[in-house]
Simulated scan of single mutants.
Amino acid sequence: MPRAVLDHDAKMNRVIAALWAAFPEATSSHDLAERAAPYFRNRQGQPIDPKTVRLWLSGVSLPRGEHVFVLIGMVGAGFFGLPLQPAARRGAR
C-alpha cells in the first residue's frame, strides 16, 4: 500500500532543501535563518525568531502549515521535487 503522506524525515529534508533553495546566497545555517525569518510570521503577525528557522534546519521541529505555504510560494514547484520551468518558456508552444 503506498504511503499517503511523507514521513517526518522526508518532510524535514524537503523543508531544509527548500529553505536553502529560497536563499542560495546564505553562507551558513545561521545566515540562512537570519535571512529567512522575516518572511515568516507568528500568530500575532510579527516576524518569527531566527531561532525557529534554525530549529527547522536542525530537524528539531517542522514549520506550521502557513509557514510551509510561504515556503512553497518562494520556491514554487521545486518544493515538491518537480523541475522548475523558466518563466520565458511558460506557455511556449
Score class of each variant (00 low, 15 high):
Pro47Leu: 10
Arg3Asn: 12
Asp7Ala: 05
Ile16Pro: 02
Pro24Val: 11
Trp20Tyr: 10
Glu66Asp: 15
Ser58Asp: 14
Arg35Cys: 08
Ile72Leu: 00
Ala88Phe: 01
Glu34Leu: 14
Arg90Ile: 01
Lys11Val: 12
Trp20Ile: 05
Met74Cys: 04
His8Tyr: 06
Trp20Asn: 07
His67Ala: 08
Pro86Tyr: 00
Asp9Cys: 01
Gln46Tyr: 10
Leu84Lys: 07
Phe80Cys: 05
Arg41Thr: 11
Trp56Asn: 08
Asp7Lys: 05
Thr27Asp: 09
Arg35Ile: 11
Leu62Lys: 11
Arg54Ile: 06
Leu32Met: 06
Ala26Arg: 07
Arg64Thr: 08
Ala37His: 06
Trp20Gly: 04
Gly45Ala: 03
Pro38Trp: 00
Gly73Gln: 07
Gly76Ser: 07
Arg93Phe: 01
Ile16Gly: 04
Val75His: 00
Ile48Gly: 10
Arg35Pro: 06
Arg54Leu: 15
Val5Leu: 11
Leu71Met: 00
Ala22Trp: 03
Asp7Asn: 13
Ala88Met: 00
Thr52Gly: 04
Ser29Tyr: 11
Pro63Ser: 12
Val60Tyr: 09
Gln85Asp: 05
Leu57Gln: 09
Pro38Val: 01
Val15Arg: 01
Gly78Leu: 02
Leu57Arg: 08
Ser29Leu: 11
Val68Ser: 03
Thr52Ile: 15
Pro50His: 07
Leu6Ser: 09
Arg14Ala: 09
Ala21Ile: 05
Arg64Ser: 08
Thr52Met: 12
Thr27Val: 13
Pro47Cys: 11
Pro38Asp: 00
Ser61Arg: 14
Ala36Leu: 10
Arg41Met: 14
Val5Cys: 08
Gln44Cys: 01
Lys11Tyr: 09
Lys51Gln: 14
Met12Ala: 15
Asn42Glu: 04
Gly45Lys: 03
Glu34His: 13
